[in-house]
C-alpha cells in the first residue's frame, strides 16, 4: 500500500523543523499508515495469524491440552495413507462441482427470468433472496426435518401420491445422503448467484439487444453472442465465490449428517473439525484444513486467468 504519493515535497521539508510527533501526525505518508492501521490490525489478528497458526500446527503433533512438537510432514504422511481423508477429498470435489454447476445453471436461468418485465417483479426478487438470508443452521434444521427418515414430508407426499410405498432413507443411505446435502446447498446458494448475475444483466445496455435484434439475432443468439460474453466478468467473480463457499462448506453438512452415513458426506471441513476439535488431534485437523488451500488457490487461479483474457474489458472507459 505505497500508492499514496507525497504531492507536497515543499511542505515535507518545512515539516522537518517540527518535533517528531508533530511530523508523524501530519506527514501525508504517515497519516495514510495511521488510517490503515485499524483495518490492518484486524486482518492480521483475525485472518493472517489464524492462517499462519493453522499451517504451523499442521506440522506439529499438538493436541487439545498439550503444546505440540514439530513433527515435519508426519501429519501429511498419515493423511496420504488415510482412505477416509481421500474419501473426504472426493466428497468435497463432488459436492463442489455438482452443487456449483447446478447453482450456476439455475442462478443464470432465474436471473434471465427476473430480468424480464413481469408483474410483481420486486416482490419475486425479494422472495428469491429468502434462502440466502435465513441463517444456515436454521435452514439446515428445516432440511433435517424434510429429510427425516420417519416424518419426511417428501416421503409422505410421494406415498400419498402412490409413487412409492415406503419412506426414502434420505440421510441414511450413502447416495441419498450425498444428493440431499447437495440439494440443500443448492437451495441455499442459488439466490446469491441469481441476484448477482441479475445485477450484471442490468448493466447490459438494452440498445445492444435492439442492435442485435436488427442484426438478425434470435433469442438464443442474443444470449450466446451478447449476454453471455458481456456477463463473463460477473460470472467469473460470482462462480469463484460460489466455489470457495461450497468447497469450504461446513455448517449445512454438519447440521444435517455430521459426515455420515459411513463418511459418505464427510467434507474436508467437517473431517478437519471432527479430527481436530472433537478428537482433539489439532495437528491432524490443521493438516486437513491446510490441504484445502491448494484447491482453493487453483480455483482462484482459474478465474483469475479467465478474467485476464478479456482484452475488451481492460482500461477505464467502457461505454
Amino acid at each position: 500500500m505505497t500508492t499514496i504519493q507525497t504531492s507536497m515535497p515543499a511542505r515535507a521539508v518545512h515539516a522537518d523543523t517540527r518535533p517528531l510527533w508533530d511530523r508523524l501526525r501530519t506527514n501525508r505518508n504517515w497519516l495514510a499508515l495511521w488510517f490503515m492501521l485499524p483495518a490492518a490490525a484486524f486482518l492480521i489478528l483475525f485472518l493472517a495469524y489464524p492462517l499462519g497458526l493453522g499451517i504451523w500446527m499442521s506440522f506439529t503433533d499438538e493436541r487439545i491440552g498439550r503444546t505440540g512438537v514439530f513433527v515435519g510432514l508426519e501429519n501429511y504422511e498419515w493423511l496420504w495413507s488415510d482412505s477416509i481423508f481421500w474419501l473426504s477429498v472426493f466428497n468435497t470435489l463432488l459436492y463442489t462441482i455438482i452443487a456449483s454447476a447446478i447453482k450456476f445453471a439455475i442462478g443464470l436461468y432465474l436471473a434471465l427470468l427476473l430480468n424480464r418485465h413481469m408483474p410483481f417483479k420486486a416482490m419475486i426478487r425479494a422472495i428469491v433472496l429468502i434462502p440466502f438470508i435465513v441463517p444456515t443452521v436454521l435452514s439446515a434444521i428445516a432440511f433435517w426435518w424434510i429429510y427425516d427418515a420417519q416424518f419426511s414430508i417428501i416421503s409422505w407426499s410421494l406415498i400419498k401420491l402412490g409413487l412409492i410405498t415406503q419412506n426414502i432413507n434420505f440421510l441414511g443411505d450413502t447416495d441419498w445422503a450425498r444428493a440431499s446435502v447437495i440439494f440443500a446447498n443448492i437451495w441455499r446458494g442459488v439466490p446469491f448467484v441469481a441476484i448477482t448475475l441479475l445485477a450484471g444483466l442490468q448493466t447490459v445496455s438494452p440498445s445492444l439487444y435492439e442492435a442485435a435484434t436488427l442484426d438478425g439475432a434470435t433469442d438464443w443468439q442474443r444470449f450466446r453472442y451478447i449476454t453471455y460474453p458481456l456477463l463473463t466478468p460477473i460470472i467469473a467473480v460470482v462462480m469463484t465465490f460460489s466455489v470457495l463457499f461450497t468447497f469450504t462448506d461446513f455448517q449445512l453438512v454438519w447440521a444435517l449428517t455430521r459426515g455420515g452415513p459411513v463418511n459418505a458426506t464427510h467434507l474436508m471441513a467437517t473431517l478437519s473439525y471432527q479430527r481436530g476439535i472433537l478428537s482433539g488431534r489439532l495437528g491432524e485437523g490443521a493438516a486437513i484444513a491446510t490441504a484445502m488451500i491448494p484447491f482453493l488457490l487453483a480455483a482462484i487461479a482459474i478465474s483469475w486467468f479467465g478474467m485476464q483474457r478479456r482484452k475488451w474489458q481492460q482500461g477505464s472507459d467502457n461505454d
Binding site: 435492439e210 436488427l214 442484426d215 439475432a217 443468439q221 478479456r310
Partner: peptide, 25 residues
C-alpha cells in the same frame, strides 16, 4: 439497418466483428 444514438457497439467485439456480426448470424 439502424444507427443508434449511443452507437450500441458490441463492446466485446472488435470493429471488424461488430461490422460482420449480422453477416455471421
Amino acid at each position: 439497418a439502424m444507427v443508434f444514438q449511443n452507437y450500441a457497439l458490441y463492446p466485446h467485439m472488435t470493429v471488424a466483428q461488430n461490422m460482420g456480426f449480422s453477416l455471421k448470424l
